[in-house]
Design a protein around this nucleic acid. Structure first.
Lengths: 238, 238
DNA sequence: GCTGCTCTGTACGGTTTCGACCATACGCAC
DNA sequence: GTGCGTATGGTCGAAACCGTACAGAGCAGC
């Protein structure tokens, strides 16, 4: 089957579309595999496609002119990458790349924008999604400014867990430290503490979530608000 | 004159509109004074108006469920408050309040949204502005995660200076510490250092910018990217 | 000029996180 | 099984920043 049917699709944005709106977009859809570290959006470069994630996980990172960088957002099955085209700019200054390999339904930007013109339901749903991303960005700033590594690490693991199947996250301490903007051995220490609490189990290149509920307790107010906003705006029948 | 003419208006978004688009919005405009600490958008409450700032300065803050908060954005003459209505949500989880008293042109939300439907040029300009705010949010997260108080304070002062007339910023160390999410006496110490560099002059309740160029040097890569994006997307003739 | 309030200056000890290291452990390729 | 690259565990002193506390300075009102 060349184009996926709505019932088969796993992306939560596409699932939330009215069937006829989905059909309008369907002709332009293409299911593609996305490999680890693949860029979906490069900073300052126009992107040819927008991506509705089907599996795997992408990270959005902000970089400064003097080389500092930090992760500011996650994109999984609940979201899309490249939405800045809807904000009338062909480029973004944030980079989006695959943190965990997977697949996505991609749509060429021109066809995507054309379809939006005619289907308000798509446009409005995705604008609400953009608002959710704003809330997520704001909470990343809040997390970085007001919470300790301990809580931020918990938040980060929860955000990954939300977006991936299963309880295993394939990632190294080094990668985590880059995303959180902290020292690598600091991540190691904090993971030991979480292991001591029987919340996660870490092995070489892998972190398994053992007790998600307790992990949410550890994260405290650092986690949750953007997720609640998503449920409210995207998945609640109006 | 009941409604302002475009040549008199000081808001940079309104100035950038094509004249006929401005006229469409003009009927609904009302110039209002905004007092210190006045809320323009309350978290979780629908707002009746959007505000195009004419003078003064508003802060956007994110708050978590356990009471932590930090400033994530600035809104001055270059911007508007309440744009989340364009993202199809009547409420936002971010609060916007006046940090420095001033005035704004306000437009009722319903009339605003109605006018947008008919004037793509307004909608597209403001969508580009929303993108600029995203970049600003991302940079706030980056600043909080990767830069020291010293650089963040410099960034904050620069962002205020960009948006206000003159070189005097009327604010207390206490307020600054709340916005930056740091200890009050930490702000005092850092200001002394900036005074030692002859970059600012602080008096009770006031900070005067003496040497803006040097202040930008102090801020380093922490400052500048969102500002460049604004100039590129809003004020460059397409 | 006195009073009372807010704002600023400064100090203390304590915690978090850093940067730079090096040692060890794992696991794949051969 | 050996070798080697990568990942993890752990240490050191130093820096940034915290919470708390209190004294003095500026300013408005009486």
């Amino acid at each position: 089957m060349p184009h996926p049917s709505q019932s088969e699709v796993r992306n939560r944005l596409l699932k939330a579309l009215p069937p006829q709106a989905f059909d309008a977009l369907r002709l332009h859809m293409e299911l593609v595999e996305l490999s680890l570290r693949q860029d979906l959006v490069e900073a300052g470069k126009p992107n040819a496609f927008v991506y509705f994630m089907e599996s795997g996980l992408a990270s959005v990172v902000a970089e400064s002119s003097d080389g500092e960088s930090v992760e500011i957002g996650h994109v999984g099955r609940e979201g899309m990458a490249g939405y800045h085209v809807m904000l009338m700019t062909p480029t973004s200054s944030h980079r989006t790349f695959m943190q965990s390999a997977g697949s996505a339904i991609r749509v060429p930007v021109a066809a995507f924008m054309g379809t939006l013109e005619e289907h308000l339901s798509i446009r409005n749903l995705l604008l609400r999604y953009i608002h959710c991303c704003e809330v997520q960005l704001g909470h990343s700033a809040l997390a970085n400014g007001r919470y300790s590594m301990h809580e931020r690490l918990a938040r980060w693991l929860l955000m990954c867990h939300d977006r991936l199947d299963g309880d295993d996250l394939a990632l190294t301490h080094e990668f985590l430290s880059l995303m959180l903007g902290v020292r690598r051995s600091g991540v190691t220490e904090q993971l030991h503490i979480l292991e001591g609490l029987h919340v996660v189990k870490a092995t070489r290149g892998n972190i398994r979530i053992i007790d998600r509920e307790k992990l949410e307790e550890v994260a405290g107010g650092c986690y949750g608000a953007p997720e609640a906003e998503y449920r409210r705006l995207i998945e609640t029948p109006a």
